[in-house]
Amino acid sequence: MGVKFFGQFLIDAGEIDASHVREALEFMEAQNPAIGQIAVAQGFMNSCDVARVHAEQRCRDLSFGDLAVEMGLLANQELVEILQRQRSRRIPIGQALVHLGHVASDRFGLLLDAYKADQAQFDVSDMKLPDGLASHRVTSHVLELLPRFMMRVARIQVKVGEIHVFDQVPEFAEVRVSVLLRGARGLEVALVSDIEFAEALAIQASGLLPSDLDPEMVADGVGEFLNVLCGNAASGLAKDGHRVEIGPPDYDAELCDGWVVDLAVGTGRAAVVLSTF
């Protein structure tokens, strides 16, 4: 029901199981050139340096790259470059599964097409964003996926409206929940609303009766929606090679700057506030 990576899609479709994924990951790691090998090929380290790091690793529980940096044999920027090269040369999991015989080569194309068709519902186009937000790629994912997940999670129709500079906290913002997205550029995504909207969202998300809701549960429901939205936005971005870490919800978000995105909702009033950090 959300953004998936190819291995997960194959498990969910009953084509493979978790042990096959584990085996494929081990194969991919074995095929991957080691950090030391790339460092030598790039001229960042020599074979004696590599041997010194390996010797040190016998008594230290640190990765090769971190240890090499700590020992002064590799610069931080060089490690970043090496890791990028290692990632770019990584065998895709589908290819590994075919190589290991867990997916028949003549079915691979068919399954890949089915995966792309399944995930097309989460495709995001480039939105027109204000200058300060345009470089935060996750913003487009969050705003485009918002109506789709609001419908899926809470059966509430939402239309994303104007984006304008934050000047004051919207007067209807009785509930203010935010999630931090940390990556190369950080973004705080806050969903602010009146009680009516928040309760409607919480009821649909939890399945509770209105009489069973308490204020904590209302905020929790909004937080869980944000978690689903931002988690899937981050997963979509990860497919393009951009990692974003999502934090747990803050149920008492302080709003002081950024941009306000108006939301047209059928029940109550709501908006999204985006702040960069």
């Binding site: 959300g2 953004v3 998936k4 990576f5 190819f6 291995g7 997960q8 498990i11 978790a18 994924v21 584990r22 990951l25 999991i93 978690n227 689903v228 939205l229 931002c230 988690g231 899937n232 981050a234 997963s235 979509g236 990860a238 497919k239 990692r243 999502i246």
Partner: peptide, 19 residues
């Protein structure tokens, strides 16, 4: 919600998650 991020999901499988 981040199961679509292959790095997170792969880490879970490596640690023994069944799904």
């Amino acid at each position: 919600s981040v199961s679509g991020d292959a790095t997170k999901a792969e880490e879970a499988f490596k640690l023994g998650a069944c799904q």
